[in-house]
Every structure is written in C-alpha cells, then in structure tokens.
Design a protein around this nucleic acid. Structure first.
Length: 109
DNA sequence: CCTATGACGCCGG
DNA sequence: GCCGGCGCCATAG
C-alpha cells in the first residue's frame, strides 16, 4: 500500500458515524491534487481493511456515486441509513447538515 | 512510451 | 442551475 493510500484511509476512518465527507475535501486536506485519487484508493480499500467506512464518502453534491462498487448496489445506502441518514434518489438528504471536514479534527480531543 | 479510464471537481457558456 | 469541456493523476493495457 502506498503512503497516500494510507493517508486517505486514515482520514476516512476518522469520519464520525452518521456524518459524510467528499472526495474533494479529503484530496484538498491531503493536498493530493486530484479527487480521483481518493476514489481510486477507496476502490481498493477493502483489500487492505474491510472495516474502513468507505460508505461515508460521497461526491461534492452528496450523491452516492461509489455505490456500484460495494457488495450490492444498495449496500452503501443501507449502511448510511443505518447510521441515521436519509437517502433519496442516491443522494444524501440535508447534505449540508451532515457533512464533515477533515479540518474538524481536534488534536485535543 | 501513449492512450484510455475513472467512487472527481472547477469553470465558462 | 444545467451541461460540456478540461485538468487532475494513478493504473491498466
């Protein structure tokens, strides 16, 4: 596993239950230069650690664009709904209220 | 090497 | 606000 993949996985693991973040925000925070790299890394994530909450990463509009890469097409939605989110039309409802940023990480906590 | 392909996102029309 | 175009960059072939 490469260094940046490790970094991406570490960030994703920090996403609180019931919250979501975007490919772009993770890419910006790690200064990767490309949001695509986040999606690519997550695609491989289960190979290294199946417990990574990859379902909590959506695109900038709140769409579950990664859903087709899970065990079943509705698995991503099920996991998010189980965490209290409402998904409609493959989109996170009330997206702005549930979004989380790596910037929120507080070293003192 | 060179091209195509993404779990993306910005910018201009 | 919706598209289309383009930049992005690792990987596969």
């Amino acid at each position: 596993m490469t260094a940046y993949q490790q970094d991406i996985f570490d960030i994703v693991r920090l996403i609180p239950k019931g919250r979501v973040t975007t490919y772009g925000r993770i890419a910006d925070y790690l200064a990767l230069g490309s949001a695509r790299m986040v999606g690519w890394a997550l695609n491989q994530s289960h190979v290294f650690d199946a417990t990574i909450p990859a379902h909590r990463v959506v695109n900038r509009k709140g769409e579950l664009t990664g859903r087709l890469h899970f065990e079943s097409p509705n698995r991503m939605q099920e996991l998010l709904e189980k965490e209290g989110l409402i998904i409609k039309n493959h989109c996170v409802q009330n997206f702005e209220n549930h979004i989380w940023s790596p910037e929120e990480i507080d070293p003192d906590c």
